[in-house]
Structures are given as structure tokens and as C-alpha cells.
């Protein structure tokens, strides 16, 4: 298909509900992708409650809380950017989009500081130091690195998608009458936020 025929077909059926349906179905698959890891988490926490508790003490609740605040706020700016675009305020929408991206980057920056500190102490999967610990602690840190790692990867992908949205908004290919791309990116971003909403208490706040 060439560019203009694409445009033509898009004109013929611009099915917003259909596009969003596709996006939601994709998010369902994402939910279950993380769901598989939550099953592992549930079983191993059930088997090793004490070790999970003591390992969680070593995670920095302050960094976790800051990251929670950052992601929740980025969800707000994401929602606001869509609303602004709907109301035709392109510039405002761009500001909110860029803010969202910056907060995503800040989240990842924090995360890498946190991981870096752990690595510095010899805490990483299969490290000689970690292997001297009990199996509950090995599993806790395994889950911690894998789940926050895959979540971080999703944040990174979200940032990439939003960069494209900034480009599209500047070029005007998404605007107040045609913003389903931005809305779908928003759905993805909010979903990644929801995952963090669960990860935060499950890793940082075990008592």
C-alpha cells in the first residue's frame, strides 16, 4: 500500500472503537504475561514468607515510594495530554507528552540507581554472594530483578511510543479529530503504571 492509499482507506473507515478494542485485547495479553510472573511470586512467597520479609527489608522503600509518585503523576500528565489534544490545544498536549516522557525517564533513572546499588553489593542473579543465601532470598531477588526488569522494559517501550506520538503531534498527523493513536499509547502507559501499583507493595512493603 502506498502512503496516499493508506490515507484513503483510513478515511474510509476510521474505526476508533475497533482500534481501541485491538489495544485493549493487547493489554489483556500483557496482563496475563505479568500474571504468569505473579503466579510464581504467589507460590514462592507462600512457601518462604519469612525470607521474603527479611529480603524486602533490604529494599529502599523511599526510592520505591518516589518512583510510585513519579509513575502516578506521569499517568496524570498522560491523561491530560489526551484531553488537551481533544480540546485542540496542541501545544499544551505536547508539553504534557514531554513531561510524561521525562517522568518515565526519571523512573528508569531511579531504577538503575537502585539496581546499581544492589549490583555493587554483589546482589544479582546467580552471583556468588546471593547463592550463599537461603533459597527464599534467592527466589525473592530473582523475582525482584525479573519482574521489575520486565516492567522497566515496558516503561522503556512506552517512552519510545510516546516519542513517536510527540513527532506525530508536531507533524499534525494526530490532532483533535484523530487522536486514537495517542489514546492507545495512553492506555499502554496507564497499564504499565497499574503493574507498578502492584509491584510496589509486593516487593517493598512486605511485613
Amino acid at each position: 500500500m502506498t502512503e496516499e492509499t493508506l490515507h484513503k482507506t483510513a478515511e474510509v473507515h476510521r474505526d476508533y472503537t475497533g482500534s481501541k478494542m485491538g489495544m485493549w485485547l493487547f493489554l489483556f495479553t500483557e496482563m496475563l504475561l505479568f500474571g504468569g510472573m505473579f503466579i510464581l511470586y504467589a507460590v514462592y512467597r507462600f512457601k518462604h514468607p519469612e525470607e521474603f520479609h527479611t529480603s524486602a527489608q533490604d529494599l529502599d522503600t523511599t526510592i520505591g515510594a518516589i518512583n510510585t509518585l513519579i509513575l502516578l503523576t506521569s499517568s496524570l500528565t498522560m491523561a491530560l495530554s489526551i484531553l488537551a489534544l481533544q480540546k485542540g490545544k496542541k501545544r499544551l498536549s505536547l508539553v504534557f507528552q514531554v513531561l510524561t516522557i521525562l517522568m518515565g525517564a526519571a523512573f528508569l533513572g531511579n531504577k538503575s540507581l537502585e539496581w546499581g546499588a544492589k549490583f555493587h553489593h554483589g546482589m544479582y542473579p546467580n552471583s556468588a554472594y546471593l547463592l550463599t543465601k537461603s533459597s527464599g532470598e534467592i527466589l525473592f531477588y530473582g523475582l525482584y530483578f525479573v519482574m521489575t526488569g520486565i516492567h522497566g522494559l515496558h516503561v522503556l517501550i512506552g517512552i519510545g511510543v510516546l516519542l513517536f506520538m510527540v513527532l506525530f503531534t508536531m507533524r499534525g498527523s494526530i490532532d483533535s479529530t484523530n487522536f486514537v493513536k495517542l489514546e492507545n499509547s495512553g492506555l499502554y502507559w496507564h497499564f504499565v503504571d497499574i503493574v507498578w501499583v502492584y509491584l510496589f507493595p509486593l516487593f517493598y512493603l512486605i511485613t
Binding site: 499517568s75 496524570l76 495512553g186 496507564h190 507493595p201 512493603l205 512486605i206
Partner: peptide
């Protein structure tokens, strides 16, 4: 009980995000 409370609060947050932010 803390895990139950933590999950309840998390689900409430998720519901807010879904219901309002995700339309």
C-alpha cells in the same frame, strides 16, 4: 492481613486508573 490490605489498596488504585485515566 497486611498482604490482603496491600492488595486491596492496589486494586482500588488500579480501578481508579482503569475507570478514569483509561476511560
Amino acid at each position: 492481613a497486611s498482604i490482603v490490605v496491600a492488595l486491596l489498596i492496589a486494586s482500588l488504585k488500579a480501578a481508579l486508573i482503569l475507570y478514569f485515566f483509561m476511560h
